[in-house]
Structure formats: C-alpha cells, structure tokens
Design a protein around this nucleic acid. Structure first.
Lengths: 224, 224
DNA sequence: GTTGATGAGAGCCATGGGCTTGTCAGATCC
DNA sequence: GGATCTGACAAGCCCATGGCTCTCATCAAC
C-alpha cells in the first residue's frame, strides 16, 4: 500500500533486500572477503567496511558474527592455514606409497597452485606482522609450523630409519626454511626464478638431506 | 616581560621550547622512530602522531621533511636495508682473505646481532606486506635482494671457479632463501631452534652447495 | 635588531570501529 | 495457509583516530 511509505515524514529509499543465510555461509563469506582484502590492499586496507562491502553485506553484520575485526582476521588465518595444510596433505596422498615420493610431493606442492599464489603471500605477511603483537596468532602459527615440521621429520625418518633424531629435526627445519624462503621470494618477485627451478632446488636439498645425492653440480662431468 | 603574555586575551600555555636541528638529524630521527614504531606496534600502529611522539617532535614536522607518511616509510626501508647490507659487508671484511671464510661469515652474520633481532623482522614483514601494493617498495626490494644474491654468486664462483654459471645462480638463490626462511622463523618463534643451530645449518648448506661436504649425517659412523 | 627558515600545535576533513535501532525474512504454530 | 514471533540483517550514528594543512612562535645567523 502507498500509505505505508506515506507514513514516513521523509521519503527514504527502501531497505535493501537480503536473503537469510546460515551462520556457516555468512562466516565463510566474511572469511573469504577478509582474505581477498588482505591480498589486494594489505592490512591497512582491510577495514570493517571494506570486508563487508566485498562480502556483499552491511557493516553491522561483522560484529554480529565475530567479536570484531581482529577475531575475523584470526579466523581467516586459521582457515587459510587449514587450506594450505589440506593442499599439502592431498599432494602427499596423490604421491603414492613411496615415502620418498611423498616427501618430494609435500615439498614441491608449495610451488604449484593453490599455494603458489601471490595473493596468499599477501595474506601470510599480514599474519606474520601480527604474530609478534597477538598471542592468539602466535599460538596458531606455532601449531601450524610445528605440525609441518613434525610431518617432515616423520617422513625423513621413514625414508632413512637410521637417521639420528636430532639430524632429522634439523633437516626438517632446514627444508621448511628453504621452502618458506623460496616461496616468499617467488611470490614477491616472480622474475627472479621459476616455479620449476624452485621445485628442482627443493628436490636437490631433499636428496642432500637424505644423504642420497648421487649427482654433482657438473652433471655431464667427464670426471669418473 | 609579563606584558607579552598579557597581550593575549586567552591565557594559553607557552609553546614548547625546541632546538633547531639540521635536516639530516631530523630525518634520521624520524626514520629511527618509524622503525621503532613498526617493530613495536606493526603497520597499523605506525601513524604520524605515533612516529612524531617517538621522535619527540610535533606532528607537523613529518610533512615538513617528507612528502607524507608513505614516503617516510619508504625512506625507512631504504635505511634499514642499507644497515643490514652494511652489517653483512662488515662481517665479510672481518672474515679475512679466504673467500670461503667470507662466504661463511656473510651467511652466518644473519644470525647474530644486529640482524638477528625480532624487532627487525617486524619492520621487515611490514615492508613485505607493502611490496605488492607499492611499486617503489618493490623496486627497492628487487635491488636489495638482487645485490645480495649477486654477491653470493660472486663468492661462490671465486671459491669454485669451475662451477657453472647457472649452478652458481641457483645455489645463491637457495642459500638466500634458506637464510631468509631460518631468519624469519627464528625471529617469529625463537624456541624452535637456536642461533647456533641456524649457523650450523647454513654452513652445512654452504658446503653442500660448494660440493665440498665431507662428513655425513652420521658423524661417528662405523661405516667405512 | 632583522630576517628567514625551522618547528609547535591547533584544526580540518576523511575514515575507522563499534553500537544501536528498527525492519524484514522465514520458521513455527494453529 | 495465514498470523505471529524470532533473530538475522541494513543503515546510520558516535566517537576516536588518521593524515595533512595552516598559522604563528621561536631560534639562529647575520
């Protein structure tokens, strides 16, 4: 009825239509919007309004589903971390039964989609910059990295059972660091080296860590 | 004279005393204040007011000496980068004449003061998060990292002249990545491994890259 | 003392985060 | 299948903070 609008003394535009979604859908939408904001505009550009505009909801909704923007960023970190872990796990499963293949797959998957993604790095650096100031982020970081290293360590000792515990620990740390460093640099500046070169480098490092590197840097060497 | 204050209709507190400084001193003070802010409170906490409060000057001075806060952050990146480069260079000089010692010193210096510093990491992550959005930061990043890699490459080929060009290039990239990854992780979470272990890891990686690794991971091996 | 640049500090406008208020979608009940 | 009720949701307000500008005080050199 026209009376309905006439009741208001000011002609205001009708409220935007919306569809009710379940809490999970909304939360996920907000998390994905946060990741996209972090990737595109960095931490500084990740505001409540920017996130909600991306998610296609009003800004009041963020507080409705999360404690605040900090809690949302935390949830985003957990989500992105879980997604990366899942991608690595999937790579391991697809590698077959040979633990050596599994290790190689686990390392090299970092240089393929969906992990090799500059947007993901932007999200990650945002989190790194929060680790020092936010204990919650620090706890999740320790958990994620600890898990990755533990997995590597297990694989290493499966492949070479006689490898000493401490040696396996340091090898896992080294491999993780190498992967991180390469991943960081290739995402920051993809012109320096290619993903294939990165995969070759981690494979070489892996074989060296296993003590099973047969070739030398002069592959077509005429030396005996 | 008392007349001087009486002239004003409102009793206002006297303007703070200050000393004139040269442009260089002021710029440097602002740059150092910016680095401290980045380290302590992250990018989000690095505002004009926070920086100027740290530097002990009023907020108007920032615009007086820099185009804006972005330009100041850029200058801070250049400054911090130059300081790190200088520390590495000094380590090389103090290492003597043997290029192998120089290489080792250059790599291991990353895990000693002043480079091994969580505050420095906080500054660095702030910059990483800006590389993707700010072309100026990206240019400086490419310059700094390119320079480091070129230096490593030169040292590698000095030590082992017969090493192929491409092999040296990849070795330099790998060593840089390993150092970066270890440095990142030890600054984020110092409980995972020690600085001495980091130094041992980079030394091992260096020797492996040179093809001069004699020992095996079972040092007290009973194998022939 | 004069002068010119350095510097303090208030103020302006834009944006941020959180909160409140009111509304509408969709489940529930009869 | 309509009335009712619940709570998800939009819109906008409030205050704090951000970057930056403008005005004028102050210092130091001549």
């Amino acid at each position: 009825m026209t009376e309905n609008t006439a009741k208001r003394n000011v002609i205001s535009k009708p409220r935007a239509r919306f569809i009710r979604e379940t809490a999970d859908v909304r939360r996920q939408a907000l998390i994905e919007a946060t990741a996209r904001c972090l990737a595109e505009k960095g931490v500084a550009g990740t505001s409540v309004r920017a996130i909600c505009a991306r998610a296609g909801v009003s800004s009041g909704l963020l507080t409705h589903y999360f404690e605040g923007v900090d809690a949302l960023i935390l949830a985003t970190y957990e989500d992105v971390g879980a997604r990366v872990s899942a991608a690595l796990e999937q790579a391991v499963e697809e590698a077959g039964d040979d633990p050596r293949d599994q290790l190689r797959a686990c390392l090299q998957a970092n240089f393929r989609a969906p992990i090799l993604d500059p947007d993901l790095l932007a999200t990650w650096t945002a989190f790194w910059s929060l680790v020092r100031t936010d204990p919650h982020i620090a706890a999740i970081h320790a958990e994620v990295y600890g898990g990755t290293r533990a997995q590597l360590e297990t694989l290493l000792r499966t492949i070479v059972p006689e490898m000493p515990q401490d040696r396996a620990r340091l090898a896992a740390i080294s491999l993780t660091a190498l992967v991180d460093g390469l991943w960081l640099e290739i995402c920051l500046d993809p012109t320096t080296f290619s993903a294939e070169e990165a995969q070759a480098m981690v494979e070489r490092a892996m074989m060296l860590a296993l003590g099973q590197w047969r070739g030398e840097w002069v592959d077509q060497s005429d030396k005996p």
